[in-house]
């Protein structure tokens, strides 16, 4: 049947995700040989109505249009294991959370309230698939060969928010955490936020002092940045932007570092040593982050261009409409 299928009762997909106020959306067909995204559109701030109109138009033309997105809320997470025992171990209340078991090995969850809130933001749309960003990350990292050799920390990042997953060759899924960036602190999922707060931060600072490691804030990274930026930082406004970007990158890096430390410290998670950090970046954080990872954490760093729409399309195809 091949591509002919799209002319006879096609199954189609409308996938999107939010990047700040921007909506990145794609339309495609679900075919036997896999999903095929044929059109991508970007809706800027204030263009939500236009996006919903597009959805209505597509739903009218293609009644079998499945709508999917991934939840970019902070109150979500993932933990190893499935079933009530695992929920109990990580303090997840099934009444307050939606939980999905992946591969029978680990679970992703999201706060029911936040999920409803997200759905309410797009009242005009009927959602068919709501994915956890951790599922997207896990699926992406498993497609790369490196995870079979090294324990990887994969980070999906967009401005102000990051999702982190640690996958090891032996244990598979190990750890996940949602990080709210900007303020410099990582916003943890419900379980960790209650268990570990000030004590852990204190421990971090102590550890840094004991090992006589120069805090990242004190490193003259700005100087390096200026050198590299060259002519682009000539104006004052440019300087301010560069400064803000530097601060943000440092906070981002700190949040990642703290998340990894939490993983090492928490006995509930499998033991693994992170050797590589892969950044699936929706922004242009890029090279600075990799440099921090390599210089400060002595790990391998890599930036991979993320295409959540394509990953979601593949997940939909795998799950089956």
């Amino acid at each position: 049947m091949g591509k002919l299928q799209r002319y006879f009762w096609p199954k189609s997909l409308l996938l999107f995700y939010l990047r700040d106020e921007t909506i990145e959306a794609a339309f495609g067909y679900l075919e036997k040989d896999g999903p095929d995204l044929v059109e991508r559109r970007r809706f800027g701030p204030g263009e939500k109505g236009r996006f919903e109109a597009w959805y209505r138009e597509l739903a009218e033309i293609y009644p079998q249009t499945y709508v999917g997105t991934f939840l970019e809320t902070v109150k979500q997470g993932a933990f190893p294991g499935c079933g009530p025992r695992a929920w109990q171990m990580f303090g997840i209340e099934s009444a307050l959370n939606n939980v999905v078991c992946i591969d029978g090995k680990w679970s992703a969850y999201v706060s029911s309230v936040e999920m409803k809130w997200f759905e309410q933001r797009f009242k005009a749309m009927t959602f068919d698939y709501l994915f956890s960003p951790f599922v997207l990350l896990y699926t992406s990292i498993r497609r790369h060969e490196t995870w079979r050799r090294q324990c990887c920390c994969a980070v999906l990042h967009r401005k102000g928010l990051a999702f982190l997953v640690i996958v090891s060759p032996d244990e598979g899924f190990c750890y996940a955490q949602a990080l709210a960036l900007g303020s410099g602190d990582a916003v943890l999922d419900g379980t960790l936020a209650t268990d570990e707060t000030e004590e852990e931060l204190a421990f971090d600072l102590d550890m840094l002092d004991e090992e006589d490691v120069e805090p990242i804030e004190d490193v003259d990274v700005f100087g390096e940045f200026k050198e590299e930026s060259g002519e682009s930082a000539e104006s004052e406004a440019g300087d301010e932007n560069a400064l803000e970007m530097l601060e943000y990158n440092l906070n981002f890096f700190e949040a990642i570092k703290e998340a990894i430390e939490r993983f090492y410290k928490d006995d509930r998670y499998p033991r693994a040593f992170v050797e590589r950090v892969v950044l699936y970046d929706l922004e242009e954080t890029g090279d600075d982050f990799v440099r921090y990872v390599e210089d400060e954490l002595f790990m391998e760093g890599a930036v991979v261009h993320a295409d959540p729409l394509q990953i979601m399309a593949e997940l939909v195809a795998e799950e089956g409409a």
Partner: peptide, 8 residues
């Protein structure tokens, strides 16, 4: 295999 929090 189920990946989504909700069913289509």
């Amino acid at each position: 295999m189920r990946y989504s929090f909700i069913h289509p």
